[in-house]
Design a protein around this nucleic acid. Structure first.
Lengths: 333, 333
DNA sequence: CTGTTAGCGCGTTCAA
DNA sequence: TTGAACGCGCTAACAG
C-alpha cells in the first residue's frame, strides 16, 4: 500500500540513507559488500525511488510539456511521436496538452504546466503569442513548432511552407493551367499565410496575375474543405487547377467533387499539401507536398534537449525543414 | 529566474506561510484584508504554487500515465483525445508513453511512471500481462483499454469486437458470398482473437464450414495488409469476400488490389473493421465496423477517476462498448 | 569509503 | 483568526 522509502531500505540494509542514495545514483563509490546489501534490500522491499522528492531537491522535473491543438490530427500525431521517442531516450517524459485551438484552454494549461515545474515546453498552437510572456519570464525553455506566433523569432522549427506551396503551384503552372485557385488555411496562422505567399510568388514569377476570386479560405478540416470547394464550384468562377493547403481539406474537396461527378484532373486538377496515407488509393491518387512530420518532432525535441544541456546557441534561430513533392496523378501527370 | 516561493509571498504580504496556504487552497477562513494582501503579493511576485512540493506533501501527483503502442495510429489518437479531455476536466494531466509494442520499452516506461508516482494508469498495449504485477502490487489504479492481457478480468473497457466481427461476417454471408476469408490481427492479442471468433461464429451459425486456408494473419499495419492480400491472391485460393480486421490493413489491401486491377466488390467484396476518414472517398467506398474511439477514451478516463475517488465498485468489471456498422459499397451493397 | 544533517516548497497539526 | 514548527523523501555538503 504505502510505498517504501529510502529510509526503510537503509534500515533493512543496515546502512545510512546516503549510502543507499549513492548506490542508486552511482554518485560515489560504494564497497561491493554494502552495494549488494543495499540492492537486496531494495529488491525485497520492491523499492522505487520517489522522483517527486528528487525533483523537489534537484529542482528539475524531467517533464516536458507539449501544447498542441489536436492530437487526433494525423500530422500532429506523427510530430508528437517524434518528440516523444526522442525525449524518452534522454530520460524525459511528455505531458500531453491539447488546446483544441482554444486560447483560454491554452492559458489554463500553461498555468498547470508551470505549476508542475516542467523543464521545457514545445508549442504548436494557435495563439497570437501575447500570453507566452509568463512562460518566457519564468524562464521555461520554449520551442515553437510549425505555427509561429507573430513576434517570436527564435527557437522555432517549421516546414518551409513557402517553398512547398511554391513548388506545388509551379508544378501546376508547368502543366499549362492558367486559372489556378487556392484553398488557404486561416490567414491568422503563419502556415496559412506562408502557403498563400508561396502560391502568390509562383504565379508572380511566371507572370500570371493573381485574382482574388480564386482565393478561398478554409479551416483546415474535412468539412471546410468540402464547403469551400462547394462554394467555389457554385460561384462558377473559372478554375482549372487547385492548390489545397492541407490534407483534411483535400479530403473534403475530393468528397465534394466525387459527389458532384467532377473529374480530377480533367475538370479540375489538384495539388495538395501533406501526403496522407490514403493518397495513393484514392482515384486519382493525390499529388501532395509531404511535410517531414516525424522529423519535425525529433528536431524540436533535440532543440529542447540542447537548451536544457546548455548548448543554447544552437537554437537561437528559426530552423526550416524542406518538404518533399510527391507527385501522382491528381495534378494531371 | 528562480521561482518565488510561498515564503517570499508571506514575507511580502506580512503574514505567515500558513495564511498564504489557506488563501490559495481556501482551507480556512482568512479575513478579507489579509486575503487581499496575499493576493496582491502573489500577483506582484508572479507566484505559482509548486505542485512538486505539494505532491510530496499530500502524496498524490495528479498525473495519469497512458501506455499505448503508437500515438500516430488513427484510432489510438482519437482514444487518447477522449482520455485527455476527460482527465483534464478533473484536474489531471496526462503522461504520454508509447511503447511501440515493445515489451522491454513497456517495462522501462512502467518503472519511470512508478517513479513519477502517477495516480493512475491507462494501458492499451501488447504485453501478456506478466509484468503488470509490479503496478498491481504498488496499488496503482489501472484501467485496461481495448487490449486485454490474458489473466486480467477487471477494470477493462473495450469495443465488443466479437459482435462487430460477427456483424461484418454476417453481412457478407447475407450477400450470398460463400468463400469468405479473413485477415486477422496478431492472434496473441485479444483484439486479434476476438475478431476471429466473431467471424468464426457467424460462419458457424449460418452453416458455412471454416476453412483454414481462408484465414490469414496480419500485423495491423498497411504493409502487412498489402503483403497478406498479395499472398492470398497468389495462393490462388478461391475467395469471394474478405473481412479485414483493421483500417490500416484495409488500406493495404485496397492498395494491392488497385495495383493488380482487381475490382472490389466484383472480384472480392470487402468488409473492414474501423471507419477511417478516407472510407468514403476511395473507390468503392469502404464498408466498416466503426469503433467508438473517443467514447472508449472517455470511459476509461471516467473509470480511473472513479477509482481515485473511491467509487471503486463501479469498475470491477469488463465494460463493452458496441461498435456500429457503416455499410457502403465495398461489400457489394 | 561511510554517516549526519540541512533544506528543497509546501500542508498541517497545535498553540496562541 | 493567525503563526511556528515539523516532516513528506530525497540529495549534497561536510565530517569522520
Amino acid at each position: 500500500m504505502k510505498k517504501p522509502t529510502i529510509k526503510e531500505v537503509a534500515q533493512l540494509a543496515n546502512v545510512s540513507i546516503a549510502t543507499v542514495s549513492n548506490v542508486i545514483n552511482e554518485t560515489k563509490h560504494v564497497s561491493e559488500d554494502l552495494k549488494i546489501q543495499v540492492l537486496n534490500a531494495m529488491k525485497t522491499l520492491n523499492y522505487k525511488p520517489n522522483d517527486i522528492a528528487k525533483s523537489l531537491k534537484v529542482n528539475q522535473s524531467r517533464l516536458i510539456g507539449i501544447l498542441i491543438s489536436d492530437i487526433s490530427n494525423n500530422f500532429i500525431s506523427k510530430v508528437v511521436k517524434g518528440i516523444e521517442i526522442t525525449l524518452n531516450e534522454e530520460g524525459y517524459t511528455v505531458l500531453l496538452c491539447s488546446t483544441d485551438s482554444d486560447v483560454e484552454k491554452e492559458k489554463r494549461y500553461m498555468n498547470v504546466l508551470m505549476g508542475k515545474r516542467i523543464d521545457g515546453l514545445i508549442i504548436s498552437s494557435a495563439g497570437t503569442g501575447e500570453h507566452y510572456n509568463d512562460l518566457i519570464n519564468a524562464n521555461v525553455p520554449l520551442v515553437f513548432l510549425n505555427r509561429c506566433p507573430d513576434h517570436i523569432t527564435s527557437n522555432m522549427v517549421m516546414t518551409n511552407n513557402i517553398k512547398g506551396a511554391y513548388q506545388a503551384t509551379e508544378h501546376l503552372i508547368k502543366h499549362g493551367y492558367k486559372k489556378i485557385g487556392i484553398i488557404t488555411g486561416p490567414m491568422h496562422l503563419s502556415t496559412g499565410r506562408d502557403r498563400y505567399i508561396g502560391y502568390e510568388r509562383a504565379l508572380d514569377d511566371y507572370g500570371i496575375p493573381i485574382k482574388k476570386e480564386l482565393v478561398f479560405e478554409g479551416k483546415l478540416d474535412i468539412e471546410s474543405g468540402y464547403e469551400v470547394t462547394k462554394k467555389m464550384i457554385e460561384s462558377e468562377v473559372e478554375v482549372d487547377a487547385l492548390f489545397i493547403s492541407n490534407n483534411s481539406m483535400s479530403l473534403g474537396a475530393y468528397k465534394y467533387m466525387k459527389e458532384k461527378g467532377l473529374k480530377i484532373p480533367q475538370d479540375i486538377a489538384v495539388y495538395g499539401f501533406d501526403d496522407p496515407e490514403w493518397a495513393d488509393i484514392v482515384d486519382p491518387p493525390l499529388s501532395g507536398i509531404r511535410q517531414p512530420a516525424y522529423e519535425l518532432g525529433v528536431l524540436a525535441a533535440r532543440n529542447i534537449i540542447n537548451i536544457l544541456q546548455g548548448d543554447q546557441e544552437e537554437v537561437q534561430s528559426i530552423q526550416y525543414l524542406d518538404p518533399e513533392m510527391v507527385t501522382r496523378k491528381s495534378c494531371g501527370c
